[in-house]
Design a protein around this nucleic acid. Structure first.
Length: 466
DNA sequence: GCTCATGATTTACC
DNA sequence: GGTAAATCATGAGC
């Protein structure tokens, strides 16, 4: 009924858009002889059309058929089409095709980059790689990766399903409308051009919907990625064992606590081994770097606070080293039974110490005892942190208040207690504390002969390389 | 809930 | 690119 009404509006001198149309225009195109007969015919047709709504459906169909078969119908139809073209539709011209929207292009590019649209290969692997690279995560957190991929895959699937639905709906709707318009074009002025334009409008509407879908998908991917990164950003304390491994390295390389890349990898591996026994997590090289960065700065800021910890690890390291030496000595004695037993001897039970104090006492006795010269190879750094090796002679573990660094003062103390002089600097045992008066770790030269006691067969020689 | 410890990030510098 | 320094953010202990 609407179409009938519209048709009446149009034919009654008013177009679809409400612009008045004067019937005299029709005369110029109706091809009649102008004797009034054509005008009368048109008047009849209009009258019939006007009254068509008052009739029953059957009657209307009959009238419709009659009108379609009327000899004037094609001419009138063409004229009406032309009028419609010139008035209503021309106003809308240019508004309906805006498909090359840059925003749409951006969305397309984004979806392509995220691996949602385009070929499925890797399913967003590039995005994962980018995300992980951004936070310095290695390829060892496969659980999070697979989670991310699974979620991304879900998004991709939903996106493609919806896209397909929209495309199908668009095609169906377009076909439907085209058929409808073709059908209607028999009775009202609808040109092929108008049908084409209508199809464009439909496509445009659907592309708008598609753009919204793409936008939503992009947002979903962004949220997923953000959550993925947030999860990685979440701080998780290292296990005690891992911290111990790192601390051991730090304090045994205190003169130059800058592990090389290989050393970091080695430490990461060590931590991973120890960690895997406890927590289901791993420590990456970048995390090792972070740890050393934090440790250096925090140690430097508050040396006194870390002194106890330093002592603990130094003692631990020294004990380990002493243990190794003892084993070597015993081995040596075993190989040469004639060797006098007056030398430095150690037994395993000597090192069954747990308390820091005991370790320090042991070390104290080792240095001040009558057993003579004792060499702890590779423990140069740790000596720098030993407080009170000789009790009263040690100047305490406080941060020097003057320009003198703690390292220097400690060295002084050791020199005093052990009777060392500054000339000891040439001794491979002595490793100058690399923290200078400005609190900067200058390039302390750790003798190549100095090997960290914690370094065994799998030792990491980064310190010497630095 | 507060405080401290600590892993991670950012920024500037070399 | 590695590092220092500052800062953020969160976990853990109380």
């Amino acid at each position: 009924m609407d179409e009938h009404r519209r048709m009446m509006q149009t034919l009654g001198g008013v177009t679809l858009t409400g612009h008045p149309v004067t019937l005299p225009v029709l005369h110029a195109h109706d091809g009649t002889d102008g004797d009034g007969r054509g005008k009368q015919d048109i008047g009849d047709i209009l009258h019939q059309i006007m009254t068509i709504t008052d009739q029953s459906l059957d009657e209307a169909q009959a009238k419709k058929h009659g009108l379609n078969c009327h000899r004037m119908k094609p001419a009138l139809f063409n004229v009406l089409c032309e009028i419609k073209e010139k008035t209503g539709l021309s106003i809308r011209g240019g508004q309906d095709d805006d498909l090359s929207d840059p925003q749409l292009m951006r969305l397309d590019n984004m979806l392509l980059a995220e691996g949602v649209s385009g070929p499925e290969k890797g399913s967003g692997a590039a995005a994962v790689a980018a995300a992980t690279a951004a936070v310095g995560i290695g390829a060892d957190n496969s659980i999070e990766h697979s989670d991310y991929r699974a979620k991304l895959s879900q998004i991709r699937q939903i996106y493609h399903t919806e896209l397909e639905k929209y495309e199908q709906a668009c095609n169906e709707f377009t076909t439907h409308v085209m058929n409808l318009l073709r059908e209607q074009s028999r009775t009202r002025p609808i040109s092929p051009k108008e049908i084409e334009r209508m199809v464009n409008i439909i496509h445009h509407k659907f592309s708008t919907i598609q753009m919204q879908l793409k936008q939503s998908t992009c947002e979903a991917v962004m949220i997923l990625r953000s959550r993925f990164l947030d999860a990685r950003r979440k701080r998780r304390n290292f296990s005690k064992q891992a911290t111990e491994v790192l601390n051991e390295y730090f304090y045994s390389h205190l003169s130059n606590p800058y592990p090389s890349e290989e050393a970091k990898e080695e430490l990461a591996k060590k931590c991973a081994i120890t960690v895997s026994q406890g927590k289901a997590s791993t420590i990456t090289v970048s995390q090792v770097s972070n740890w050393f960065g934090n440790k250096r700065i925090r140690y430097k800021k508050n040396i006194s606070k870390f002194q106890e910890e330093a002592n603990l690890y130094a003692a631990k390291t020294a004990v380990t080293a002493a243990h190794a030496v003892a084993a070597a000595v015993q081995n040596s004695q075993a190989n040469s039974p004639t060797t006098p037993s007056s030398g430095f001897q150690m037994k395993d039970e000597d090192f069954q110490l747990d308390a820091t104090e005991d370790k320090n006492n042991l070390l104290n006795s080792m240095f001040t005892g009558s057993s003579g010269a004792y060499s702890l190879t590779g423990s140069g750094d740790m000596f720098m942190n030993l407080p009170g090796l000789n009790g009263s002679s040690y100047q305490s573990a406080q941060v020097p208040s003057t320009g003198q660094t703690q390292g220097e003062s400690t060295h002084h103390s050791i020199s005093q207690s052990l009777g060392y002089s500054d000339g000891l600097r040439g001794n491979p045992l002595y490793s100058p504390h690399a923290l200078n008066g400005n609190g900067v770790w200058h390039d302390a030269v750790t003798p190549s002969s100095v090997t960290s006691p914690i370094e065994g067969a799998n030792s990491v020689h980064s310190d010497t390389s630095n």
